[in-house]
Simulated scan of single mutants.
Amino acid sequence: MRILVVEDDAGIASGLRTNLQQRGYAVDVCDGVAGAWSALRAERFDAVLLDLGLADGDGGELLRRLRLSPAAAAGAPAALPDPATPVLIVTARDQVHQRVAGLDLGADDYLTKPFDVDELDARLRALLRRAAGRASPTIRHGDIELDPATRTVRLKGKPVEMSPREFSVLLVLLEARGRVLSRQQIEERLYSWDAAIESNAVEVHIHHLRRKLGSGCIQTMRGVGYFVPQEVAP
């Protein structure tokens, strides 16, 4: 899952990037309103961690602008940010009226500094779960059970060893089951701006997943992309 961190304190931003990457997220960082808006127009993010006190403006105004942004029409180029992108405010502003104002602006959650990274991760997982329309913290599909909190996968109740990237590919496809995702769409969910991507990386990960979970777990629509079938065959 890909996260945009909007934070102008270089030390905090670096710490967030490192900790979230260690937990399997792809992380990009912007230090101000202008850069964050450009990033949201250019890329799709699964969630945004937003500081309010930024050097070039107030993060609340960025949030307001995001929520008022019109949804892009189907098939339109990605020139507009997704107004439904989950936003978690992370700020030192800890007064009740400030928290209320942030939530009323459209934030999905509000966390005050200093915070524990385990709590931040749990709140992020909750945001992503709600955005995907899931009530359960685990994802079950046929004989496959995936737990985002522990980053574990089971097949027919037995643990399946996976690399961090294989886990991430499977998570993306299970969250989108029934929909075809192109290689580029999968890459955009898995890699940050500075990541080196081998040309056949997605294909290799999917090959490994099929070997571990069964050849029918991920299907190919030739010339379009990959998908997990919506229905599980009996």
Rank of each mutant, 00 (worst) to 15 (best):
F227A: 02
R129Q: 13
F167S: 03
Q184N: 09
G157Y: 07
E119M: 12
V100W: 02
R64N: 08
D56S: 11
R44K: 13
S163W: 00
H207P: 01
A92H: 06
I144D: 01
L49A: 07
H205D: 08
Y25S: 03
D118F: 13
D58Q: 11
V232C: 13
R140L: 11
D118A: 14
V27H: 10
R134Y: 04
D147E: 09
L66F: 09
P229T: 11
R189E: 01
S192M: 02
R41A: 00
D94F: 05
L120S: 04
I218E: 08
R67H: 05
A196D: 09
A131K: 00
A233H: 08
P137S: 12
G214V: 14
S163V: 10
L50Y: 01
V27G: 06
A132K: 03
L171K: 01
G102V: 02
P159Q: 08
L174Y: 05
F167P: 01
P159V: 10
G75V: 10
P148K: 00
R64T: 11
G75P: 12
L213E: 03
L68K: 14
L181S: 00
S182H: 07
A149F: 09
K212V: 09
P114T: 10
G35P: 12
L209C: 03
L127G: 04
T85G: 03
E145S: 11
G35C: 09
L124N: 00
K156I: 01
P148A: 03
D147N: 14
L68M: 11
A10K: 08
L174C: 06
G178W: 09
H97W: 06
E187H: 00
R210A: 12
L171M: 06
L127W: 06
G32K: 12
F45P: 10
A149E: 13
I144A: 03
A195P: 02
R65S: 15
A233W: 07
V6Y: 06
A135V: 14
P159L: 14
P70W: 05
A74W: 09
R93G: 03
F167G: 04
R129A: 03
I186F: 01
C30H: 07
Q184T: 10
M1G: 03
Q21W: 03
L50D: 07
I139V: 15
R17V: 07
A74C: 05
D143I: 10
R99S: 06
M1A: 15
L40I: 00
A196L: 15
P70F: 04
T220R: 15
S168I: 02
N200D: 13
A84W: 01
C30G: 04
A73L: 15
T138L: 06
E175P: 02
V160Y: 10
G59Q: 01
V228L: 00
V29Y: 01
G59A: 12
D108M: 00
M221C: 09
A101I: 03
D109L: 01
D58R: 15
E166K: 04
D46E: 14
R64K: 10
L49H: 02
L16H: 02
